[in-house]
Design a protein around this nucleic acid. Structure first.
Length: 559
RNA sequence: GCUCCUGUGGUGAAAUGGAUAUCACAACGGUCUUCGGAACCGUCGUUCCAGGUUCGAGUCCUGGCGGGAGCACCA
């Protein structure tokens, strides 16, 4: 349709004697301004030497003629826009196409492309707190948005199972004489204890640093533990158990939130490759040695200089990410690689990608880092090493309890709670920080997930009690909600191209508002145009359901 | 100190270089025998400052002020 309008406008401009004009056809923010608008007159004004308004007036009859029955109204407006309102039958056709159409909003332009997207990235041996929800919720929504193009999307998560934080947790567990760990909470506490000791005691710091090096060694030889002492075996067993318990908890929560990963990568999978490649890079002059460490001189590109291999010989996160890039290519080659992490890491990724572009330009070129904002507490900064965090599980449990006050069915309460949490995160642009107030942020009313779910449930309920009806006559002019529904595919396309789930959230809120107004004003069952309104309701249900699913927000049957 | 990000009603946010800057919360007032009130209708109230580019700037550029993040052996 947009293309058709573009042609009509181009033709009209030619008749007026204008050459190539770089105009746009867009949908105006205000529904009252019509379904499409073009700024052609504004852009052509200078060349034609007339006022924009005059040109717009001249374009109107020409465009109207070219569009024929398709448009019900073409008019000049404002400083020189030409607004186009589509005719009722054209809108009705789209509504019919949307109703009962599971693929409404999806496209085919991405079929054949493969992308891998990394997100969530919780670290075993630390607790998963509400900050990790940001990465998971945003990453999942982006994955689903990418899938609307028809692309194959592989989801992966990358967890730090070796490194100083692991040493801190294991040091505290061993000190307490723990040989087995039962739950993730226990490990989280151990990590906090180990961190405190590391900062406060020189002796503990030394022990933990040594343990860290030893863990790398033990894990690296885990497959061939011939030379292991009894204590090495005990350490390895505790490490394995701790990682297993941590990951079970993570995967349980992510599954509850609607994520299933295709690949789970660990730091320990990447260290061999990472170390080898960085050492080779030293020989090639990409990296250099400094104070016993191996560094990348980011300053030569206006970036930070970062350590890739410590003076103790252990790899840092930077080297692990280099190793990971190769590991991904080996396990599942794709056309694009996305990495979703907190905004704090942009400096890190700039350096890693700069280094990677010297080592393997093809890998660097297809990798994009997508930073997301942070979740701040009104009560102060969270830090898992201080133990003052709200864990993801605690938050979800609390919101479920609140939702349960209105829902006897606990499964529904969970759907509502998850909807509320996800919407809170997705309504804002991924990069913006969220100040989280446990009392206020998780509204179940107005601009909220449950508001969208509620509109859907009510519409579904009307359909359920109406039964089958003939579609019948339609009113002469479309309702504004119809015109809003027709925009859905375009909203989805733009949101997926711009990695902007908030545009879908914003749209769905507007859509729910239009539906609620329509519902309050118009009698559906037993009212005028009953059959047509029921089809409209089906189109609304389909649009809302597909939209919520895109965001990863559950769609309850009742609530 | 250097680098990057950011500044929109009392609060939290949205806005493809376009039209009267949108939405929710809060506050205040109304709708309550009809398809589900987690709803609807109304009132109030906003682009940090100074220049610039443009027919047109919350959006782009320059400078200033405020906030956040990063800056060598954490991830």
């Amino acid at each position: 349709m947009e293309e058709r309008i573009r042609q009509a406008v181009t033709g009209a401009l030619e008749e007026l004697g204008a050459g190539e004009v770089a105009f746009v056809v867009e949908w105006p923010a205000e529904l009252a301004h019509g379904d499409f608008a073009t700024n052609a007159a504004l852009v052509a004004a200078r060349e034609l030497g007339k006022s924009p308004r005059e040109i717009a007036e001249a374009l109107v009859p020409l465009v109207a003629e070219a569009l024929g029955d398709t448009a019900s109204k073409v008019e000049a407006a404002g400083p020189g826009f030409v607004n186009i309102t589509l005719a009722q039958p054209v809108i009705a056709e789209t509504i019919a196409a949307a109703a009962d159409n599971g693929t409404w909003g999806s496209r085919t332009d991405g079929i054949g492309t493969r992308v891998m997207i990394e997100y969530s990235n919780p670290n075993p041996f630390k607790e998963i707190h509400i900050g990790h929800l940001m990465s998971n919720v945003i990453g999942e929504a982006l994955s689903r948005l990418m899938e609307t193009s028809g692309a194959t999307v592989l989801r992966d998560t990358f967890g730090g199972d070796v490194g100083p934080h692991v040493a801190k947790a294991l040091w505290a567990l061993r000190r307490a004489g723990t040989t087995d760990v039962a739950n993730a909470g226990e490990i989280g506490k151990a990590y906090a204890q180990g961190s405190t000791a590391y900062e406060e005691s020189e002796a503990a710091k030394q022990e933990i640093d040594e343990l860290n090096t030893r863990i790398y060694a033990v894990v690296a030889q885990a497959e061939a533990p011939d030379g292991f002492s009894e204590d090495d075996r005990a350490l390895l067993a505790l490490w394995r158990k701790g990682r297993e318990v941590s990951m079970e908890e993570f995967l349980r929560i992510f599954k509850q939130l609607g994520t299933n990963f295709d690949y789970i990568f660990y730091d320990s999978d990447t260290t061999d490759t990472g170390l080898r490649i960085v050492r080779e890079g030293v020989a090639q002059g990409i990296f250099e040695e400094s104070d016993g460490a191996v560094i990348y001189r980011g300053e030569k590109k206006g970036l930070h200089t970062l350590v890739f291999i410590t003076s103790r010989g252990t790899p840092t996160y930077e080297t692990k990410d280099i190793g990971l890039a190769f590991l991904k290519e080996e396990r599942a080659p794709t056309d694009k690689v996305y990495i979703v992490t907190a905004v704090e890491q942009v400096g890190h990724f700039n350096v890693v990608l700069a280094a990677l572009s010297e080592i393997a330009p093809n890998l660097a070129a297809k990798t994009t880092h997508i930073p997301h904002g942070l979740l701040h507490l009104t009560t102060g900064k969270m830090a898992s090493r201080k133990g003052n965090v709200i864990t993801a599980a605690e938050l979800i449990t609390e919101v479920i309890e609140r939702a349960a006050q209105k829902n006897e069915d606990l499964l529904v309460a969970e759907q509502v709670a998850i909807g509320a949490v996800k919407y809170m995160i997705l309504r804002a642009a991924p990069g913006s920080n969220i100040v989280f107030d446990p009392e206020k942020s998780l509204s179940l009313e107005g601009d909220s997930g449950p508001y969208l779910q509620y509109a859907l449930v009510r519409a579904s309920s009307v359909l359920a009690s109406a039964g089958e009806k003939e579609v019948g006559d339609a009113p002469d002019a479309p309702y504004s909600i119809e015109r809003l529904i027709t925009r859905f595919p375009e909203v989805v396309r733009r949101a997926s191209e711009e990695c902007a789930p908030q545009q879908v959230a914003q749209y769905l809120t507007q859509l729910a508002g239009e539906w609620n107004s329509f519902y309050a004003q118009e009698r559906i069952i037993g009212g005028e145009y009953e059959g047509y309104k029921l089809r409209l309701a089906r189109a609304f249900v389909r649009t809302m359901k597909n939209g919520l699913t895109l965001l990863g927000i559950p769609t309850p049957e009742r609530m």
